[in-house]
Structures are given as structure tokens and as C-alpha cells.
Amino acid sequence: MDSELEPALVIINNEQILAEHRLPGDLAMWFFILAELTVFAILFIGFAVAEQLNAEMFIEGKAKLHQVAGLMNTLTLITSSFFVALALNAMHAGDGKKSAKLLVVAKLVASVYIAVKLWEYLSLFDQNIDIETNTFFTLYFMITFFHLMHILLGMVILTFIAVKANKNEYNASNITGFESGASYWHMVDMLWIILFPLIYVI
């Protein structure tokens, strides 16, 4: 019996080593994430350069933003990402129902982000500030709205994988779709982590 199991255990050990050095999710998704990161990097650098060229306008513009709203949005996105990470752990453990519930919690937390962002936009509109007010607000609305679109796309992806997880359609050998969706969501979180200090703090 032992001699029969030995070759199988060697395979397991080899697969464990491979698993510890494998890329989670689909390779195509990582290239897509890289492309998204590049676009945002250009926007962030453009914002920083524009700030150096229009220092006074940017100081006045930033003073009109609600820093606590920015802080709240950062905390909600980090928390949402945390629940997605827990959902992936649950799925790895084979518990699709629990994973789906954690994804729903992640989406509920993310909806707080959307509500706060919309409140921020509306309060700026109330002050007669919009995308055409000046360079600062053009860039502010452009970058934050572009990011918001990514949040909405991420929520659609999370819904899709939550439905599949609830039906237990993922398993140990078929989980790359889940991992790809989770990685996309973490990317959206990571982008906000750079965006927040750039627009609200510095």
C-alpha cells in the first residue's frame, strides 16, 4: 500500500510546489490589469504635473473636496477587498455558499463607496462646480469617474462569480475564474490607494 502511494505523494508534493509559484487566475486577466494600471499611471502623473503648473488652483480645488469622504471611501474599498479575499479562502476550502455570502458583504460595503462618491459629486454640483469649472475639477471628475466605472464593472464581476460560487461551480481544479475576478477587484482597490492621497491628501 505504502509503495503504491509513494509516487502519488511525489506528484502531490510537486503540485504543491507548483501551486506556491503559480499565478492566481487567468494570465489574460493579469495583462488586462497591467493595461489598466498603465492608463491610471498616466492619469496620476498628468494630475501631478498639472498641479505643479497650476499650484494655486489645485490648492483651492482640494480645499473644496471633502477629505473625510475620501477617507471613508478608502476604508470601504479596503474592507470590501478584505471580504473578497475571505471569499476566495472560503472557495478554496470548498464552501461555495459561504464564499457567495462573503461576496455579497463585499458588494454591500462597496455600495457605501458608490453612495459617498455620488454624494460628493452632488454636493459639488450644488456649489456650481462641474467638470468644466477648471483644470483641477476636469481632472478630478475624469479620474474619479473613470475609477467609479471600474468599481461598477468590478461589482458586476463579483455578482457573476458569487452566483457561480453559490451553485458550487468552482472547485479545486476550476477556480481561476474566481481568482481573476478577485484580482480585478483588488486592482481597483490598489488604484484608489494611490488616487486618494494624490487628490485628497497631498
Binding site: 502511494l5 502531490i12 504543491q16 507548483l18 501551486a19
Partner: peptide, 17 residues
């Protein structure tokens, strides 16, 4: 033995927390 296969969670919930 299958439970030893590689797709087990690489990170614990504690580490994520």
C-alpha cells in the same frame, strides 16, 4: 490525501485580517 492537494488556501483568514 486529496485534501493535501495544492489548491488549499495559501493564506489564512487570520493573515488577511
Amino acid at each position: 490525501l486529496c485534501d493535501l492537494t495544492p489548491m488549499k488556501t495559501l493564506y489564512s483568514n487570520k493573515k488577511n485580517t
